[in-house]
Structures are given as C-alpha cells and as structure tokens.
Design a protein around this nucleic acid. Structure first.
Lengths: 152, 152
DNA sequence: TGTTACTTTATAATCCTTATAAACAGTGTA
DNA sequence: TACACTGTTTATAAGGATTATAAAGTAACA
C-alpha cells in the first residue's frame, strides 16, 4: 500500500512535469519542489504551508515565488485553488475528480469520490440559461476523532 | 409581481427584526438599514457594497459597523456569508434554501432551487465516518448576457 | 558570445477584515 | 432626576493574505 502510494506519486509528478514541458513552462528547482510537495502531501496546504515546508531546502525562496507558481499551476490545470471560509486559500493537486469533507472543529479535509452531479448542472443550466463550466461542493461536519473528544 | 415582491420583502424584514428582539440584539438605525438593504437587494453584496450603499443615509457610519453587524446577523442565523473565489465575502439574507450559479465573466450570482443533496451527505458520512452538518455547492459558468457579448 | 525572454528574489503596496479605545446611547435603579 | 451599567458606534490602527514592482539571476538560442 505504501509502496503503491509512492509509485503513484512518482507517476503523478512525472505527468505534471510533462505537462509543464508541453505548456512551455520552465521546470525550475523551485517549481519541481512545489509540485513534489503538493503531489505527496495529503493535506491541502496553504501557500504559507508550502513556503515553510520548503524553506529548509530553499532558504532564499520568496513567498512570491510560491504564489506565482501556484497561479501558473492553476492556469495550466495542474492545481485547484480552494477558497473555503478560512482566511487563506488551500491548494490541491488535481488527480481524479473528488469532493471534500471538512471538519468544522479541527479543519481536517478528507477526500471522497462521488459520481459527478451532472444532473444538477443540467438543471441549473435549464432554469438560468447559463452555459455551465463546472461546479464545486463541500460537505461540513465533525470528523471521527473530534467526535470522540467530545465524549470525554 | 413587483407589488408581491415589495410585500414579501416587508414581511421578511419584519421577521428579521422580530428575531433581533427575541435574541436581545438592539435594533439600531444602522442595523435596520443594513438588514433592509440585504432583504431588498438581489445582488449578494460585499461588506463594502453595503457600506457604500448606506453612506448617503449614514455619512458617519464606520466600515467596522458593517462588518460587526454582518457578524451578528450571521451568528443569529439571519445572514449567510459566501466565500467564493473572489477576494471578498458576499452576504446573503437567508430565506429559503437555494444554490447559486455564478458567472465567471461578470461575477453575477443567480439563485436556483434544487432538492437538497441529502444522498451525497449520507454517502460522505458513510465513507468518511464524519457527522455531517451541512454542505455547500455552487455552479460556475457564463450568464446569457455575457454569452451574447462573446458573439460580437 | 551576446541577446532575449523568463524566473526568482526582496520589498513595498494593496486590499479585506479585525482589534482597540474612546465617545455615545439606551436601560434600569435608587 | 441622577447615576451606573451595558451594548453600540465611531475612528483609527493593526493584522494577514495576496499582488505589484524592480532588480538580479538564469536558461535558451541565434
């Protein structure tokens, strides 16, 4: 399982780097590291999380570099920006389509898969006349470990 | 139709003011005006929109007053805060449950009704073990008038 | 090699939101 | 009425996230 995960991450990183090449975006050490961190992290990090995580390896890296490159990645479709209620955006490496469940007490984010809500999009298009491009959905609640804490 | 709308707005405002009384929140002129503006506006305004809209009537009102009262209204369930992709929050007077379609080119927000996605919540609860409290969903696309502009 | 375009860095600026403290207003009580 | 108490508004400062700017660095390429 862990072995599989490592292997998948490696593939995903390779694919992402290929996309960079195809799009004509240079693969700098910083970009490589940011992508690698995103692919391997399961935590939906903020820009600052990424900055802090990499400052050991890149002591001189600027926060602006993180933001700039996250924007680049978003524009070429490698990364999704999540604007939840909290103050700062979180960033999510795009693999397969999935939704998020968010713990309202510890802010943990857990992925889950669910067949796309195409009917909702079609319905909305019908009643509003919009050309629909996509949708977002998040579910809020309390994670198992926070539920347990409340019992004590 | 217009007459009906005015009448409904009036009822909604009255109900909201009743809620304030019941909750022990004082009805100040500023609060009255902010609520009235929210009820009658169909535009999901930002805090700054509200501030600008009322500065004619309240030349000395502080931005903090708008933010403070929007927080109060949110806490007692009169108002919902929408944190979409753009930089600032938008505020929505809560009437009946509905979802939003957002135009990616002019940022217009249109309401639409759709039966709640209870199955999705139940599914998420099942696979993640979360206690679910609620969800949010928005649909993105291009509104009819922006679609037309693109044709010329 | 030299030129060009892209990238990073460092820093300043911007924007949204919240915190703070003083002034103000309403409410209740002696 | 006078007084104290509490909640509210105001004005302003402070905070935090993100973007803009300009200079320095680096890769690509004629």
């Amino acid at each position: 399982m862990s072995h599989t995960h490592v292997h998948e991450s490696h593939e995903q990183l390779k694919d992402a780097l290929d996309t960079l090449k195809q799009t004509g975006v240079r693969i700098t050490p910083q970009r490589h590291a940011i992508l690698e961190f995103l692919v391997e992290s399961m935590t939906h990090p903020t820009a600052d999380d990424i900055y802090k995580a990499l400052e050991g390896t890149f002591p001189n890296m600027s926060v602006a570099t993180v933001y700039n490159n996250l924007r680049v990645f978003r524009e070429i479709g490698l990364v999704r920006e999540l604007t939840y209620g909290d103050t700062s955006s979180r960033f999510d490496f795009i693999t397969t389509e999935h939704y998020h469940v968010i713990c309202e007490s510890c802010n943990k984010i857990v992925d889950f898969h669910y067949p796309g809500l195409d009917e909702v999009e079609q319905f909305a298009s019908h009643v509003t006349g919009f050309e629909i491009s996509h949708h977002r959905m998040e579910i809020y609640g309390k994670c198992p470990s926070c539920s347990n804490k409340d019992l004590h």
